[in-house]
């Protein structure tokens, strides 16, 4: 008997949801004496957030994914010219300004929402990249939305859509730690030279 799996991701659909993870604080890294090594270690800690499904699902190469198993978005959607879906079926056709808790459904407990809601631009796609590659990409203004490191910090620490990762609505595992802590890690990473893991 032969059955196909739509993708490797689909076969993971039965995997248990991720447990909420902790995120270490910058102070936890002070014992690393070499500043560059410390910086790289801080980035690896940031990587727990960057590679979390709450973030990766909307940093794809083409179409977004869903769930902790990162299965293809259902209904099927495309990136579209403005990273905002197709004409007639934009992101906001379903995603409102706030998370929407469903009633009488079970299963899907909420529909994610935020104002604005869209995919990260394709040059910021992280799916399938190593942490070192994500790091290099983040520092490259050509591929980070033209941001300086300071602006990058602001994005990580204060952007509302980034912050949604920690308040993703009922039925979804939040990103590790908190946005404040993620901001502090980013600050410490920049202050230590913004080194990338190898």
């Amino acid at each position: 008997m032969t059955r196909f799996s739509l993708s490797v991701a689909m076969t993971l659909a039965l995997a248990a949801p991720l447990a909420a993870q902790d995120l270490r604080m910058p102070a936890d890294f002070e014992n690393i004496e070499n500043e560059t090594e410390r910086s790289a270690a801080l980035f690896e800690e940031m990587g727990k957030v960057l590679t979390h499904p709450r973030c990766l699902n909307c940093h794809p190469k083409d179409s977004p994914t869903q769930g902790d198993d990162m299965h293809p978005h259902e209904p099927p959607v495309i990136r579209g010219d403005a990273d905002f879906g197709a004409a007639g079926m934009n992101c906001t056709t379903c995603h409102g300004p706030e998370n929407f808790e469903t009633t009488g459904v079970g299963g899907i407990e909420s529909i994610p929402g935020h104002e604005p809601w869209s995919l990260a631009p394709v040059e910021m796609a992280w799916v399938d990249l190593s942490l070192g590659e994500i790091c290099a990409q983040l520092k490259d203004p050509e591929r980070n939305g033209g941001r300086s490191l300071e602006e990058l910090h602001e994005h990580m620490a204060e952007d509302g859509l980034v912050g949604w990762g920690w308040e993703p609505g009922a039925g979804r595992t939040p990103a590790p730690g908190s946005q404040d802590l993620f901001g502090e890690l980013t600050r410490a990473w920049i202050d230590t030279g913004a080194a990338c893991p190898s």
Binding site: P75, T93, G96, I108
Partner: peptide, 23 residues
């Protein structure tokens, strides 16, 4: 009831919107 089927589609300020997930 969960924006899977589109039967509830309306236009909200000129854009398509699934009314079943619109408070």
């Amino acid at each position: 009831g969960i924006a899977q089927c589109g039967a509830c589609t309306i236009h909200l300020d000129g854009m398509t919107r699934r009314s079943c997930v619109t408070p």
